[in-house]
Write a protein that binds this DNA or RNA. Structure first.
Lengths: 151, 151
DNA sequence: TATTGTTATACTCTATAACTATA
DNA sequence: TATAGTTATAGAGTATAACAATA
């Protein structure tokens, strides 16, 4: 098999991993009344203080209008509240509720459990090579390849 | 660093790869007037004969209604046509146009180019370890982990 | 005048249910 | 009666543009 063929097979496997992980993610989040986008927003809240919708839009790199929708959904399911900003009456502070904190704790616990399940008992050399390869891919994807992948 | 910590870092990096690859994919497809779902449909067409919408629904594991929408979009952009089924007047054969074949050829060419760009000059040991690790992950994700990942 | 968040509008992907035409 | 594909309706994520309130 040529090097190019080997590389294509490897890329196909990476893409398959992307698909499988994505489906698994969506399924387990849906079981908690969450979506990927809403969880991303919750994750930002869980790793910082209450924050304005404008800041959330910057953090998620999404339009302010999209944040309105995501926060609407999270308010409806009780994971966040909209609180007045102490000294800017235009702004709103999106704030995690106890239910929101709980769901994020579960999330992080399951995240650790998945990491153990995936990598436990993996050959040390394989693990190190895997991580090293992963780093190379991330660096190359971030540098200059953007937009030309043709995936 | 504990093993669990190392494993969590590795999983985080996998998830980052998922995000970066997904964004890159969407961007380069959008430049051709395509989306991920429509490309998936086109890919099935490109690797087989003209096929009914029902069969496409099964292949993409999506509802028949969703196929109607995807085909509508692909007809509008000129990548497929709806042709009558030769002997079942209920059914429709979705068929690649020349433009559809062209866009899929470009897609496959760019796919190879990306594979080369990502893996070329990668240390042999890293490459083999990466692929081996990838296989382990895929096997474990497909077996039993489904739905309990908590990502 | 600039910023924050909203409403208005639109496009994509997804689903279920009801319906039409055909088998 | 069952199947192929549609319309009807709905929810989620995304965007831009116009607009309100406030800075």
């Amino acid at each position: 098999m040529s090097d190019t063929d080997k590389h294509c097979v490897a890329l196909d496997r990476v893409l398959e991993l992307v698909v499988v992980l994505n489906e698994d993610m969506k399924r387990s989040l849906a079981a908690r009344g969450l979506t990927v986008s809403r969880t991303h927003l919750l994750w930002v809240l869980a790793h910082g203080d209450p924050i304005t919708q404008k800041s959330l839009a910057d953090a998620l790199r999404v339009s302010p209008r999209t944040i309105t929708g995501l926060v609407d959904g999270l308010v409806a399911t009780g994971f966040v509240t909209r609180e007045p900003h102490p000294f800017d009456r235009r702004a709103i502070l999106v704030t995690l509720t106890d239910a929101g904190k709980d769901v994020m704790s579960d999330f992080e616990r399951d995240h650790e459990q998945l990491a153990r399940a995936l990598f436990a008992d993996m050959d040390d050399g394989d693990f190190d090579g895997f991580v090293a390869g992963l780093d190379v891919l991330l660096v190359r994807l971030r540098e200059g390849l953007s937009g030309s992948s043709g995936l």
